[in-house]
Design a binder for these strands. Sequence first.
DNA 1: TAGATTGTTAATCGATTAACAATC
DNA 2: TAGATTGTTAATCGATTAACAATC
Lengths: 213, 213
Amino acid sequence: MNKSSISISVIKRLPRYYRFLENLKNNGISRISSSELSDRMGLTASQIRHDFNCFGGFGQQGYGYNVPELHAKIGEILCVNKEQKAILIGAGNLGKAVANKIFQRQSGFKLIGIFDKNEAMSGKMIHQIPVRHIDYIENFCIDNSPTCAVICIPAGDMKELTDLLCRLGIKSFWNFSNYDIALAHPEVLVESVHLTDSLMALSYLSNNEEGQK
Amino acid sequence: MNKSSISISVIKRLPRYYRFLENLKNNGISRISSSELSDRMGLTASQIRHDFNCFGGFGQQGYGYNVPELHAKIGEILCVNKEQKAILIGAGNLGKAVANKIFQRQSGFKLIGIFDKNEAMSGKMIHQIPVRHIDYIENFCIDNSPTCAVICIPAGDMKELTDLLCRLGIKSFWNFSNYDIALAHPEVLVESVHLTDSLMALSYLSNNEEGQK
DNA sequence: TAGATTGTTAATCGATTAACAATC
DNA sequence: TAGATTGTTAATCGATTAACAATC
């Protein structure tokens, strides 16, 4: 199966499949058909079968899908068991919340360093990782070679910071700032979470509901 | 202009346009053409003109778009100046970070109440709003009629909570939990932020880059 | 075997892009 | 006026859905 044929929309649905299957598995459900899963997830059965088949034949005609097996397969596809070394920049409320998320479950990453420009934070422990002053980031990266950076600081000097991180070998960013890393660094992978954009979309929709329903 | 003809993909791009225009405005740029904006945003000029025209003719042939005017128009479309009453459930790190976001700028909502099940949080102030125990949520909603609920607690008893909130008149949810409110309550509007899904998508992509680039 | 359900192709639908006439 | 750039329609592209043969 040629990976390049898998569209981004399919990929974005994978974690949701993974969550639903995990839930079914935890509830002791061992078998499910695409049409039952479609009811539970609010998708079409056709789309579910089409999505799964991007990665190979996981089901069995006349039977459906084996839940624990499919769950494991999707976990493998998502590489959730890998531990790519990640660093967190920004140890405020958002940074701490995001650190929790990373530690909460296997997500493909392992947080190995936390940095903040606030001196008062230095030395504090978050999930058994000491917060370091941001000035130590360069040496830390040289010594530990993280490949992913999680950006939890407001805009500020984002250009300087991301330029540095890219020079230091960071290959992917989980970006919570509004700085457009992807435009400045097309060579790296950027997954952005724009909280304000999300809220504003909700504002639009809740003020224009008649048109949407 | 028939609002129902505006696709969700266009709507999701509006906040980003708004941000970029704000930035241009703050930098004293008063005029921009679709092609220059396309360079800055990494979109096609065609798409930009097409998007803007969903809402009416904001530009001028031979000239382009007036930045402050367009910024204001998009702000109006997004209803960022409205103050829909919102309550926050969950005052942990994520809840606090999200509260900051709501207060940071005009986003169409105004936080009027914060709730947490942790007794120790009760009475603490966040942005001059006292944290109340979650048991007070019913009376608070009856007295204050919020229309939006921001969910910043892990799954737990989400069904019970969201059923209650819907009964109490909540019309829209900004949902950070993995509970699928939209499936349980098709009558309300739900904008979800699935942090773990976002991270897992990044995991997939960073492990399968050759196919994506 | 008969019934059920997948895997897969073809049809449809919708979003993006290209093109160019309108017009500032 | 001539040049630039929008507004808008048509063409293209891609994603979703429908249909059904394959097969467990």
